[in-house]
Amino acid sequence: MDLLIEGDALLGRVILAHGAGAAMDSEFMEYVSHRLVENQIQVVRFEFDYMHQRRSGGKKRPPDRLDRLIQAYNDVIDSFSDQVPLFLAGKSMGGRVASMVLDQSDAQACFVFGYPFHPVGKPLTTRTDHLLALEKPLYIFQGERDPMGHMTEVNNYVLPSTVQINWFEDGNHDLKPRKRSGCTQSAHIDSALSVMTSVIVRRHSERDVNALES
């Protein structure tokens, strides 16, 4: 599996997985990665096998089975053996997979941009069962009008305290608002990244304190 590794892991390492329909070098993924690298956070991007085959063969393919997606994410985690603080992240489907491997990994937290709470048009087919048992923190950055889980729907879910949802005004699945809202997608993403960076910095500081006390 080819890995795209950017930046120095001065504060930590983020493994960032793409969504179902866009590759690891999509505009959204590029923006998120570059902003994290600017904040001294290393970003590791990779592609699930179906996307890799789509890139090399040119034929559009559906996502792999969930078990294969989970195994692929775990393979990336296992490729690093150093003691750099690890964080998981992903866009939509990639974030869902990241949240499913979180508790069994050495990662300290997980971040999801646009969690796919349910398929589009199927609000009763929820993807929240594993969230109820999460022991590690999960931060979700969700647009208020996301068709895969908008604010009215999701606020009716019963989720544990380990799951923190950050809502973005008028945002869609890519956190993009309509012009009339007065908001911008870049501002929403930057706000999400500010939360993400703050968590990573705090975890890094706690790690330094623990090292001094031991």
Rank of each mutant, 00 (worst) to 15 (best):
F113S: 11
K59R: 15
V43S: 13
R68A: 15
L69H: 05
N74H: 13
L88F: 01
G121K: 03
L131C: 09
Q40A: 11
F46L: 09
V120H: 05
R35N: 07
V120M: 11
H34T: 13
G94K: 01
S99K: 04
R68G: 10
H34E: 15
D82Y: 05
M93C: 08
A89I: 02
D49A: 12
L124W: 01
Q83S: 14
S79I: 03
M51V: 09
K91R: 08
H34F: 10
K136C: 05
R61P: 02
I77S: 08
N74V: 12
K91S: 09
M93L: 15
A133H: 11
E30D: 15
T128F: 00
V97R: 02
E135N: 07
H34V: 13
Q83V: 06
Q83A: 14
D75F: 00
L124R: 11
P119N: 08
L138N: 10
L132W: 01
M100I: 11
Y50T: 11
R127Q: 09
A133V: 09
S79P: 00
V43M: 09
V97F: 03
P85M: 01
F46V: 10
L36D: 06
K91E: 06
G95T: 02
V44M: 00
F111A: 09
F46A: 08
V120T: 03
R35F: 00
V97E: 11
V112D: 13
E30F: 12
P123V: 03
G114N: 08
Q71N: 15
A98L: 04
V84E: 14
V101C: 07
Q83P: 04
T126Q: 15
F117D: 15
G57Q: 11
Q71I: 05
G114T: 10
A109R: 05
L86R: 04
V84Q: 08
H34G: 12
I140C: 12
R68V: 13
I41C: 00
R35H: 03
G121W: 05
F48G: 08
I77N: 05
A98I: 05
K122N: 14
I77R: 03
P137S: 10
R127I: 09
G58T: 07
Y73R: 02
R35V: 00
L102V: 00
G57S: 08
A109S: 07
N39M: 13
I140G: 12
L132T: 09
S105V: 07
D103K: 08
P137H: 06
S99T: 12
P62G: 01
Q83N: 14
L132C: 07
H118T: 08
S79R: 05
I70P: 09
G95I: 01
R127W: 08
R61G: 06
N39A: 12
Y31G: 12
